[in-house]
Design a protein around this nucleic acid. Structure first.
Lengths: 336, 336
DNA sequence: CTTGACTCCCAAAACGTTTTGGAGAATCTT
DNA sequence: AAGATTCTCCAAAACGTTTTGGGAGTCAAG
């Protein structure tokens, strides 16, 4: 309700002094500072955000683009991550705005609008593709950004990612060690880096074991996509005895496919993401997860450091993948 | 990269004229307007958002507070709703910022910060409580807002809500008509309006049928909460033969409890929210959903109308609930 | 008594828009 | 041909901050 001018007048001080008192500068006496603070508290003064942003040449905003097109926005716990990120950004005076992509526009258009209108200080990119035009654009503009997932960009950029290659390779090798020989992979759309990375991990393990890599089916990264892909693999003359799925949602879809075919309940399966829901499926879903606490906080920290000008090379986090063993991976290798 | 002054200089025009040309005012000749537009396009001019906001006295921002404390943020499809809302707000030049509640602060503190710093033009409140302090605060400040869910506020305020009372009453009566007599309710935390409303619907139906209302257990609105609440009801000497669950997530938790007890697979169950996941549980989960297309767009529209000054009474939407029948509600009434 | 250092304060200039209130020229009216 | 009207355009004033570049005092040292 009050602005600096009114507050200054009521105190018989100049705008300058009041402003500096509230910002804790040393060139205003302790007594005055206290007097100003009290008065500000009493009238509930808050600096007008727009004015400050204009003067400081900072938007105090970070945008996250939400892909809307294909199937989905991301795993269900994605909002938790955003929430954690927003919380930590807020501690540094930044707010997080969500920027969905309207139909008819590309993700690039959105980036352009936010960047060229100087509406943001940085951007957070999720669901990166192997070749991601948003990354190229932001690099060319020199705007700080962090991605959730790597890309194949030649220039390094800040990211946080899980080591899907190692995780899926390990999961596949574990099935092999348990005696499985026909290990299938249910893959996500290969233009996404995470899907490609996980698929590569599975394929590498299969090749190391001298196994054929034809038991692979691709689908949308949703329950339905996993369901359809699983049905496709189960129709093969020589069915898989174990399935490694790109995401938990796909694995949950595949689980339904397994229930619908004879002997399907003898097939092992493992997902990735550790959705809470996985503990409540039938059978409880074995899965993998990226290690590390509070992903959102990590994103916030990287964003702040990127805004602070740290070089991209120091802002890259590749997290190990750990197993979350429940029941679905323990089926006998011989059955199917 | 360019501002109005530079653009004006390069065209030999005044700032005023350039500004008005781009805004399409009639007092600049068509020829000039076109010339200005071309030049602006060429240099990729976008008005500086902070400056415009300061001058226009509008934040061009709407905040949505995300409860972080208790269990969860909301149903998994919640982000889709936010995304839809943000998309439609963007068409009106507004961006949506997410405002999670840091620990140690209350949701009220967040509202205060956004409102008193004039950082937002309106707010979106989710997970309303029966007595919601945020609502009272915003009403006292006269800031436009819309809630997802009703409250018991004496003053009317804009909201969108599903008619949980009618939906849960109908679901309970349907079980009764199918011969069930011991119909249990798995309730969410009763301080939330939606949980209270749904519980009331179940209770009303039970009383209409002359049945006791003691088969009710409360839990956190998550899988785990539903699981524990279901176990509690199943321990009763006279077990329910059907369960009406406040949310799908709770129902999915309850489904696991049913698998763990003898004869549990004979018990009918229905949830609410129509999570995509429900089609992939075992058995596929029967559920309910709020009618209406694109909830996010409705929120955006209500927010814009609220900002436009329409009275609260005209900004209230109560949507009917419809059944989504899959398998889980069709178990025989006599079994358990 | 001067000099310099230090303390506390302030006027004024940004930041980049939008909007107000005309001004000058051209066109129309009578 | 004088006055009224319409077209185009513009200078200047906001909007509410932060920051720059001092300006008075006061005090201690020279």
């Amino acid at each position: 309700m009050a602005n600096l001018k009114q507050l200054a007048q009521s105190l018989g001080l100049s705008i300058t002094t009041v402003s500096r008192a509230l910002d804790g500068y040393a060139d205003v006496s302790a007594a005055t500072r206290e007097r100003v603070r009290e008065a500000a508290d009493k009238v509930g003064y808050r600096p007008n955000a727009s004015a400050r942003r204009l003067r400081r040449q900072r938007a105090e905003l970070v945008a996250v683009t939400l892909p809307s097109d294909p199937g989905h926005i991301g795993p269900p716990h994605f909002l938790d991550m955003l929430s954690g990120c927003a919380e930590h950004l807020a501690a540094a005076g930044l707010n997080l705005v969500i920027a969905p992509v309207p139909r008819g526009e590309s993700e690039l258009d959105i980036c352009r609008r936010f960047v060229d209108g100087r509406r943001v200080d940085a951007m957070l990119l999720v669901r990166t593709k192997r070749k991601d035009e948003r990354v190229e654009f932001l690099q060319s503009r020199g705007i700080p950004f962090v991605t959730n997932g790597r890309t194949e960009s030649l220039l390094p950029h800040p990211y946080i990612d899980g080591d899907g290659f190692a995780g899926f390779r390990a999961a596949t090798l574990r099935f092999h060690a348990a005696g499985h020989r026909r290990i299938g992979h249910i893959a996500g759309p290969q233009e996404y880096y995470f899907a490609y990375d996980r698929c590569r991990g599975w394929r590498a393990a299969m090749e190391e074991c001298g196994l054929a890599t034809d038991l692979c089916a691709e689908g949308a990264p949703l329950e339905q996509g996993g369901y359809l892909a699983a049905l496709e693999l189960l129709r093969q003359p020589s069915r898989p005895t174990a399935l490694v799925c790109a995401t938990d949602e796909m694995a949950i879809g595949a689980l339904r496919a397994l229930r619908e075919v004879d002997g399907g309940n003898q097939i092992s399966i493992v997902g990735h993401d550790d959705l809470p829901m996985g503990a409540f499926t039938s059978p409880p879903l074995s899965t993998m997860r990226m290690t590390g606490e509070n992903l959102g906080a990590s994103f916030a920290s990287l964003l702040l450091r990127a805004i602070g000008g740290e070089p991209a090379e120091e802002l890259q986090e590749l997290h190990a993948i750990e197993f979350v063993d429940r029941d679905s991976h323990r089926r006998p290798a011989k059955a199917a």
